[in-house]
Design a binder for these strands. Structure first.
Length: 567
RNA sequence: CGGGGUGUAGCUCAGUAUGGUUAGAGUACCUGGUUUGGGACCAGGGGGCCGAAGGUUCGAGUCCUUUCACCCCGACCA
C-alpha cells in the first residue's frame, strides 16, 4: 500500500476521553474511531490487525479439528426463554421486535444458538465429539462500556462449543483447547497466564481464564513465584501457613470490651495478632424469590471474597447488610460472634475449623469471648472457603509464595457439562440406544479485546509496537525526501521486491519531512521501517527496528536479505 | 442503575461568574512559495444551527426549563 493513498488518519492529539495507552494509540494512529459509547469503527489498519488475529485463530482451530460456522447475529428471544437466560442476562440483552412483533435479541454469546443448530441434527454418539466455532460480532448492552476496545458493547469474539458423549471426552477436549489457545497467544507474542477462574452461576466443573499480563488489566490474579499456579482473585485458594503468629494462651472467658468494635481495636485491646480474632461480615443475599441476611465469619487477618461468599450461599446476588437489618434480627453489630449464633444463617471460613485461642464477639454489647476453641462447634457449623487470598500467602500447589498482578481477560474456557443441552433438550443416542444430553465445553476468545491487549503490553511513549504476527504491515519503506529521484527509485524497487516476496509493505511516498514521517511510523508501530535518506549518496540505507529503537545501517543492496532475515 | 462532570470548527480547547458588533486560538485541511534526518516557515483561504427543544429579553454560546449524548467513580460484567 502506498501511504499517499492509504486511509490512515493519524493525529497528534488523543481524544480527550481516552486514558488507556491502547485506546489513545489505536485512536491516534488511525486504527479505530469511536461512533458511540462502546461502539467503534475499524479503519483499514484496525481491520488488518483483526484479520491477522482471526487468521491465527482459524489456523489453530483447524489444526485442533474444530470446524468454523457462522450463526445469525439476530437471535429469537424464544431460545433465550427456553434456556432461562433471558432473565439472567437482563438489560445486557438488546431486545427488539420485528415487523411482525416477534421478539429478538442481538447475540451476546451463542450457547443457545449453537445447541439449537446441533440438536436433532447430531443424534448419535457415533457423530461425537464435535467442536464448532465462529468468529462473530457480539453485542452486550453494558451499563458502562469503557477503555476503548477493551470493553465495548459491540465486540468481536471467537466462541466455540464442543459436544461430547462423556465427561471424560469433554475433559480431553478442554485440555486440547487450552493448548490451542496457548499457541494462539504465543504466536501473537503475548505474555500471558492461564488461571483458575470462578465457574459462577453457570456451573460446570471447571473454568480457566487466559489473562494477558498488563498493569491496566481489570482483573486481579494471584500467581505463584515458583510454579505455574495462577488464579483469579475470585477463585484463588492458598496453602497452609508456614509461620503462624504466637498464640495467646488461657482459658475461655467472657471479657468486657467497651466500644471495641473493629478488628484493629480488638487486636490492640488484647495485644494479640488479628489472626486470632474472628471477624464477622454481614451480607444480604438475594435469591430468585427472596433475600436473607447471612453472617460470614473469618479470621480477622482475612477479608471476605464476595464471589466465594455468593457461591457458598448459592445466591444470585450479594449486597451489604445495613445496621438496621441486623438489629431487626437481634444482632449486635461490632460484637457478633459464632458461638450460640441462632439469629441468622452463618458461614464459617474453612480456616476457622478447629481454630483455637480465638477472640470473638459474645453477641452482647461490649462483650467478647477470649481463648475460644472453635472445635466445639466444628461438628455442626457450615464451613466454606470464603476468604480472599492475600499477597504473601502460600501457594496451594507448591512451596512458593503468591503475589498479585493485573490481567486482561482475553479468553475463558468452560466445562459446561449438560447445563444447556439439558435445558434445550439436545440429546443423542448412546451405545445402548438411550437418549443422553450432550456433555459440552465452551471456549471464548475476545478478538477485538486482543487488539487492545497487544498494545497494552507493547507500546512506548511514541506509540504502538506491533508484534510480528499481529502487525498490519511488516515493513514500512520511508522515502525521506520525495524530491530525490534516487531515493524514490530505490523505494519503488524495494516496494516491488518485498511485495513479490509476499511481505506486507507500506511505502511512505508522501511529500512530508523526515521527522514527520518518522513520528508517524513510530505511532503506527510497523515492526520494521526502511529509511532511505541522505546516506544513499554513499550507497547506504537503514532499517529501524520499532521494538528496540535501533537503527541498522547497511548497503542498499543488502536490505531485502536483511529484512527476510529479521522477520 | 446510584454519584459526579462535559457538550463551541475534523481534533484539542478558550469564551459562559457580569447577555451586547461579524464567535476565537492551536492543530488539521486547501492554494502558492521557501524548506527536507526527528511532528518546518511565510502568505492567502475554506470550514460553526455554540448538542437539541422550548422559554426570558430589544438582544442569548452566555440566563431559565426540559431533553439527548458522551466521559469519570461505583454497582454490574458467559
Amino acid at each position: 500500500m502506498r501511504r499517499s493513498r492509504a486511509f490512515i488518519p493519524t493525529t497528534k492529539e488523543a481524544p480527550s476521553d481516552a486514558s488507556l495507552a491502547s485506546h489513545i494509540f489505536l485512536s491516534r494512529a488511525g486504527f479505530v474511531s469511536q461512533v458511540a459509547s462502546g461502539l467503534y469503527n475499524y479503519m483499514p489498519l484496525g481491520k488488518r490487525v483483526i484479520k491477522k488475529i482471526e487468521n491465527i485463530i482459524n489456523e489453530e482451530m483447524s489444526k485442533a479439528g474444530a470446524q468454523e460456522v457462522e450463526l445469525s447475529f439476530v437471535t429469537p428471544a424464544d431460545l433465550w426463554a427456553e434456556s432461562g437466560r433471558i432473565e439472567k442476562f437482563g438489560k445486557e440483552l438488546l431486545r427488539f421486535r420485528d415487523r411482525k412483533e416477534n421478539l429478538f435479541v442481538l447475540g451476546p454469546t451463542h450457547e443457545e444458538m449453537m445447541v439449537d443448530m446441533v440438536r436433532n441434527r447430531v443424534t448419535s454418539y457415533k457423530q461425537l465429539p464435535m467442536n464448532l466455532y465462529q468468529i462473530k460480532t457480539k453485542f452486550r448492552d453494558e451499563a458502562r462500556p469503557r477503555f476503548g476496545l477493551m470493553r465495548g458493547r459491540e465486540f468481536i469474539m471467537k466462541d466455540g462449543y464442543s459436544f461430547h458423549a462423556s465427561e471424560a471426552d469433554m475433559d480431553r477436549e478442554f485440555d486440547a483447547m487450552e493448548e490451542a489457545y496457548k499457541k494462539i497467544l504465543n504466536r501473537l507474542g503475548l505474555d500471558f497466564r492461564i488461571v483458575e477462574a470462578d465457574s459462577g452461576a453457570i456451573g460446570g466443573s471447571g473454568s480457566k481464564e487466559l489473562m494477558v499480563i498488563a498493569g491496566s488489566g481489570e482483573d486481579t490474579i494471584a500467581i505463584c513465584d515458583k510454579c505455574e499456579y495462577g488464579a483469579n482473585i475470585e477463585a484463588a485458594v492458598r496453602g497452609n501457613k508456614v509461620a503462624v503468629p504466637d498464640a495467646p494462651e488461657g482459658n475461655i472467658n467472657k471479657f468486657q470490651t467497651p466500644n471495641i468494635k473493629s478488628i484493629e481495636d480488638l487486636a490492640n485491646f488484647f495485644k494479640i495478632d488479628p489472626y486470632y480474632t474472628v471477624k464477622c461480615v454481614a451480607k444480604k443475599l438475594i435469591y430468585e424469590e427472596d433475600s436473607e441476611i447471612v453472617l460470614y465469619f473469618l479470621r480477622g487477618s482475612d477479608n471476605l471474597q464476595e464471589v466465594k461468599a455468593l457461591n457458598a450461599a448459592g445466591a444470585l446476588d450479594i449486597t451489604d447488610a445495613s445496621e438496621e437489618e441486623l438489629q431487626e434480627l437481634g444482632l449486635v453489630p461490632g460484637f457478633i460472634g459464632p458461638l450460640d449464633q441462632d439469629k441468622a444463617k452463618h458461614v464459617m471460613d474453612i480456616e476457622l475449623k478447629n481454630a483455637a485461642n480465638m477472640v470473638c464477639g459474645a453477641n452482647e454489647t461490649d462483650y467478647h469471648y477470649v481463648n475460644v476453641d472453635l472445635s466445639i462447634i466444628s461438628e455442626v457449623a457450615y464451613f466454606y472457603d470464603i476468604a480472599e487470598v492475600n499477597e504473601g500467602d502460600c501457594c496451594p500447589k507448591c512451596e512458593g509464595t503468591l503475589s498479585f498482578t493485573k490481567g486482561i481477560e482475553v479468553g475463558h474456557i468452560f466445562k459446561l457439562g449438560t447445563t444447556y443441552s439439558a435445558a434445550l433438550k439436545a440429546e443423542f443416542l448412546d451405545e445402548n440406544g438411550k437418549a443422553q444430553p450432550f456433555v459440552m465445553g465452551t471456549y471464548g476468545m475476545g478478538v477485538s479485546r486482543l487488539v487492545a491487549a497487544i498494545i497494552e503490553q507493547n507500546h512506548d511513549e511514541n506509540g504502538c509496537i506491533w508484534t510480528k504476527e499481529s502487525a498490519p504491515y511488516m515493513v514500512n519503506i520511508m522515502i525521506s525526501n520525495i524530491k530525490e529521484d534516487a531515493q524514490v527509485a530505490l523505494g519503488e524497487e524495494l516496494y516491488a521486491n518485498l511485495n513479490d516476496l509476499g511481505i506486507e509493505t507500506m511505502l511512505d511516498d508522501r511529500k512530508e519531512r523526515f521527522g514527520f514521517k518518522m513520528k508517524d511510523a513510530e505511532l503506527i508501530g510497523f515492526p520494521y521501517t526502511i529509511i532511505i535518506g541522505k546516506e544513499l549518496e554513499s550507497g547506504l540505507a537503514e532499517i529501524y527496528v520499532r521494538k528496540t529503537n535501533e537503527k541498522i545501517s547497511l548497503n542498499a543492496s543488502e536490505l531485502v536479505t536483511k529484512i527476510r532475515e529479521l522477520i
